[in-house]
Design a protein around this nucleic acid. Structure first.
Lengths: 217, 217
DNA sequence: TCATAGTTTTGATCTATATCAATGCTTACG
DNA sequence: CGTAAGCATTGATATAGATCAAAACTATGA
């Protein structure tokens, strides 16, 4: 039984969970907190390439290494399984294999949206997209189908510096864009760790995205 | 037998192969030519989010739609299978399902490398990375283990404009960086569609990448 | 072989964002 | 309380790359 193999691990904000190239001895799922995947250039410039929120999965069937670092962005608890028995489970149960494939494809779609953001969006569009993403996520986690993201305070799971690393900006630019969106009455920035969306429609107009989300055609 | 379902389709350079949101009735593999995946913002800015070279796969098990456009970059021939029987095959043969998972993970790794490029690399580093990638690819396709990429002309499968779309730049910047690398004696640009790498080591130094490719540790 | 259209290169200028630098605001801890 | 130590904001300036504009190739086809 896989249940027997389950164990929990905790990491404090800022701790490394896995280094690039380190052998993957376990796979895990995020129980609480936020972790991030990041890549670094020779001279230290870094770019986040993924964000892991509760219920997200760490690990790749058939691979023993990863080529990015995994870091605890906030305090994080993981639910870990040893890799070998997990892979056995995947082989034995097609249903699980299929689910993992879906997860991989979802990650791929998210990565491609992020490529568009990194390559072509302006600083303001990047911030608007980021906040819109957080708003959608938090809406999912609270009442399903309740459209009251407006008015409710969004918790920012990261510092300005980490947001900058995620969006391919500097922390100063992130701060300035928050201020600008606030001055324009689109958001409110009370506490440094929370943002209130005052006008969701206008925020979404600022993302630069094609409005028809694939509904047409 | 799946063989019975096989058919070939050809597209001229510039033709659309699939539009975003269009129902996916077939899956395919690239036989010859180069196709690209791209995403577009409201106002027309576009970003390539993937390049499909011969042997690459189009299609996603369990999905009936894609949220990017697929376009023929050069003349392209695809080998197509109807989606339904293909999915049946995937369900029945775990070996194929596993292979598809590997392909998805490879694409994900490539997407993440590209995120680092788009978010943090300079124009020169982007061009160097692009050329290095083409050099590696062409080396694989010719003599395995033959390190004579130096001196051999690399064929560029796309115009300056398309390269710019791939790298998150403008075509003018692409052109200027080619000229600069040429002036520095790192490459030679004879024909507009081919580049000769004169100093591969120096080209790789210009990519900004951490030199140890995960070999350490 | 000339004309035309498409692509590429090069030049001049502009601007969004980075960089450098200072000041302000929380939170924690003596 | 008060005083660090982190973060965050704001300001001044620099710069990489975009944008606008023109000229130089290349290929195609009459």
């Amino acid at each position: 039984m896989l249940e027997d193999m389950k164990s929990y691990r905790s990491y404090a904000a800022g701790d490394a969970i896995l280094w690039r190239g380190e052998p993957l001895v376990f796979v895990a799922s995020v129980v609480s907190g936020v972790a991030s995947l990041s890549k670094t250039l020779e001279d230290g410039r870094t770019q986040m390439v993924g964000l892991l929120l509760p219920s997200d999965f760490i690990g790749r069937p058939g691979r023993t290494q990863i080529d990015f670092d995994v870091t605890a962005t906030t305090d994080v608890t993981l639910c870990c399984f040893a890799r070998r028995p997990f892979e056995q489970l995947v082989e034995d149960t097609p249903h699980v294999a299929q689910r993992l494939m879906e997860l991989a494809l979802d990650e791929l779609d998210a990565a491609r949206d992020w490529m568009l953001l990194l390559g072509r969006k302006t600083a303001r569009e990047k911030i608007a997209t980021f906040l819109d993403m957080l708003a959608r996520r938090s809406q999912l986690n609270t009442a399903k189908g309740d459209s009251s993201a407006i008015g409710a305070a969004l918790h920012l799971p990261m510092t300005r510096d980490q947001i900058a690393n995620y969006l391919g900006l500097t922390l100063e630019t992130v701060s300035r864009q928050f201020s600008a969106l606030k001055a324009d009455g689109i958001i409110d920035v009370s506490d440094r760790r929370s943002v209130t969306v005052k006008d969701l429609a206008r925020l979404q107009d600022e993302t630069g995205d094609d409005s028809d989300g694939g509904i047409l055609s």
